[in-house]
Design a protein around this nucleic acid. Sequence first.
DNA 1: CTGTTAGCGCATTCAG
DNA 2: CTGAATGCGCTAACAG
Lengths: 360, 360
Amino acid sequence: LSEKTSSSRRKPLRPAAASAGRPHARPSTIKDVARAAGVSAGTVSRVTSNNPTVQPHVRAQVLAAIKRLGYRPNAIAQSMRTAETKLIGCLVADLSNPLYSAIFKSAEAVLAAAGYTLLIASTEDNIEREVQLVEAFARRRVDGLMGVMSTETDPRLLQALEEANIPLLLMEREIDLNADGIATDHIGGMRQATDHLIALGHRRIALITGPITTRSGRDRVAGYRAAHEAASLAIDETLLRCESLATTFAFTETQRLLSMAAPPTAIIAGGNLMLAGVLRALNLLGRAVPRDVSVLSSGETELAELAAPPVTVIRWDLAAFGREAASLMLSRLQNPDGEPRKMVIPCELILRKSCAPPAK
Amino acid sequence: LSEKTSSSRRKPLRPAAASAGRPHARPSTIKDVARAAGVSAGTVSRVTSNNPTVQPHVRAQVLAAIKRLGYRPNAIAQSMRTAETKLIGCLVADLSNPLYSAIFKSAEAVLAAAGYTLLIASTEDNIEREVQLVEAFARRRVDGLMGVMSTETDPRLLQALEEANIPLLLMEREIDLNADGIATDHIGGMRQATDHLIALGHRRIALITGPITTRSGRDRVAGYRAAHEAASLAIDETLLRCESLATTFAFTETQRLLSMAAPPTAIIAGGNLMLAGVLRALNLLGRAVPRDVSVLSSGETELAELAAPPVTVIRWDLAAFGREAASLMLSRLQNPDGEPRKMVIPCELILRKSCAPPAK
DNA sequence: CTGTTAGCGCATTCAG
DNA sequence: CTGAATGCGCTAACAG
């Protein structure tokens, strides 16, 4: 006699009563509808999939039954048959970063219109969690995978991505994986920004940004270097602080930079979360912007716009980023064997009051 | 030799170390594993579900085959059998609102640990889209539904929610639907805020917030009224602007308020996005804070912290909100027939420099 | 045009 | 302890 209470699955004993009403009513199935409409399940399926080869009056009957029973095709069963889930797995380093959430929001709008739903998970830049998520998404048989990975090099992630064998769209990252890619033109943006500061007369410009083992960090540094090179200016490497995109990192590095024997006259926050850290440090040290030090930030935020003084920023179109990302994914889904495509979103420099010629 | 390169798929550079090398390789199934391990499918299933009634050496064989084939249980098929998807549908009015994204981020952490994945969709406060999403989630057979609905009253949404017949967790909303609920204590928060302004001597305090047809708007107004009542102060109803939580609404209403014959001496931004609108309007009109007008905002943001002057805010713990929401959902999933539970997240007032006694 | 049939991949009886 | 059989709900191929 079985005593396994752990698997006491409730059986719907009721013989498919037509009306719902009761809590936990078993959702009606295609068979229920077929029976109610006096047709076969196949015909119901033809109706729900808008197959035109159905007599109008039959279709009407079926539709009526569907409505009466509140029938909703079971997407799970559909996926089982069609081997399509209409699900896109999304990996975000930090969902609460407004840059990322804005991107996914606009991507979602495009993908939803095409019948796709987003599975979103925040990875906290934790590689193990990321690997687990890739595997979980693979088990769920998502049709596509997109996101900002925490690393471009860790073999565990690369292997997980490769074994998942799912159409992949890399955002702000570059991995040799036969994947589509979309990225902000951080090279161009940082180039413009640095040019601007150099033109103002700055010769000691600090850059705080993420590690050069990710494309966005690498590109920002590249733009910074290119500007110096174009102006035939040597770079003091101690002014480059490329370790993390965290607010706290910007906070501590700003303090360190300003306590140098020869401190920078301008600081670039190379990441949208970092401006807050820079400004906090400046407040703490009692330095005025731009009198004591000029400040420039990558990524438009309300803080940059409404700070006192308003902060000059490198700006790009987040909604466009999300839309283009979604389009790339859609065309990949349509044509899984096409060549990988890369896309770049341009940047512009928004001049405000936080940058001025350095004090003499 | 044909030049039709339409299917010129790049082959993996490496000869695919672990798994089947062919691109688009059909994911291996439980049968493949069974065959490879020389056992039956049932036994493989017992291994993957950690059923202890399997001989150690058989288990080892199976595990080896699983690894060799890169087998991943198909979650779709599992869902089909178990009638559980381990999916939670999430509806957000605006995913790019940092308050919401922070909440879902922390909820995700808790739910993921329990094996659940979030389906997230942004509704843009569009009821039709919301209804469609509820139906889409229902078709996908999500195990639970949570989110911030755009309305508490629209019959289309209420009906969709009721017919979906899915465990429901309402955030910042109150609908008579046998659902669990979690909300911020906006009554208490706004009460403290208003008390503070009254104590400073303000008698004309404006409140800009969302409509009272949603719980958060209603509660904020309630707290505001309670404070006035406690101080035996009459309320000028023209100082209440309760229509929308949008930044632009705050912007235009601030301008209107300040052009009144008897303008307010303090303005409360009753929504975290609204502070930017208020400050923009103040900048535009050249009013100084707090000399010309005191400003107070509901919801901590970097802008509030780093604005000049820093803005006094009503703050609450977003991570706790998300965690508690997740816990409510989990216990509901465990016990679908339990009584609905309600939870409230407390608020505190963070005093900064944006509030001062009104000018004489 | 419509009914019937046959799985999709898996977990879970039920035998042995 | 393990294999075989069953069916979750659906779509597509095939008859009629």
